[in-house]
Amino acid sequence: MIRLTNLADYAVVVMTAAARVPDARLSAARVAEVTSIPVPTVAKLMGTLARGGLLTASRGVAGGFSLARAPGEISVAAIVEAVDGPIALTNCLTGESQDCTMEGHCAVRGHWGPINRAVRDALAAVSLADLLMPVAAVAAVQVEVMA
């Protein structure tokens, strides 16, 4: 099974919570309250997402975090990459394959690039605005596209 890391999954949840109130400044405590993700994890993620250019951080009494762009301009791929780095299904394309015994003679290594791009493109096609739509509405849009 191919899975996102827990942090990437939580980051999508955090960003969706922020997208529900795009003009508000949210604290980590408030986001933790509405998402049931622990405050330290939310605080860490919000800092990471701000460094990734997806959230804007403001200090002071009225400070907090807000979306850096409109929900329709932020993709799930951008969120995952801000937390986990480039989307890659295998370590050989990320430079993390030092212990791969097949590295010198792997017949499929060259095929993983297009597969990774397809997965990334699929995640890039889904925006935060899409995640705000009810599931039934998303299904209806998918049916219209297929017709």
Rank of each mutant, 00 (worst) to 15 (best):
S36T: 12
R59M: 04
L45F: 03
G110P: 03
N91R: 11
T90H: 04
P134L: 04
G63H: 11
M46P: 04
G110A: 00
G63V: 09
E33L: 08
V83S: 02
R25K: 15
T90A: 06
L54N: 02
A88F: 07
T35H: 10
T101F: 00
V138Y: 08
R120M: 13
E81Q: 15
V13G: 01
A70Q: 13
F65V: 01
L67Y: 11
L55I: 08
L89T: 11
G63N: 12
S66L: 13
S75L: 12
K44N: 11
V61H: 07
S66G: 15
A68Q: 08
V31G: 05
L49E: 02
G63R: 12
S97G: 05
V108A: 08
L132T: 04
L67V: 10
P86S: 12
V12M: 07
S58V: 04
R30G: 03
G47I: 03
A32P: 10
S66K: 15
A136G: 02
D9P: 00
H105Y: 13
A107I: 07
V12E: 06
G113W: 11
A68P: 08
A124T: 10
A19I: 12
L26R: 07
V141T: 04
L89F: 06
R117M: 14
V119T: 08
A19G: 06
L89V: 11
N116Y: 10
L45C: 03
G85I: 11
V138M: 14
N6G: 01
G110V: 00
Q98D: 15
N91V: 04
T41K: 11
S127P: 07
V31K: 05
A50M: 07
A107S: 02
E81V: 09
A11W: 01
T94S: 14
G85W: 13
L26Y: 03
E96N: 14
L7V: 00
G95H: 10
M133E: 15
A18Y: 05
R117N: 13
V42G: 02
G60I: 01
D130W: 05
G64R: 08
P40C: 07
I79C: 02
A82Y: 08
S27T: 15
A8T: 05
L7P: 01
A82E: 09
N91I: 00
R30V: 06
E96W: 10
Q98L: 12
L7D: 10
G63M: 13
A24D: 15
L26K: 05
G85L: 14
G52R: 09
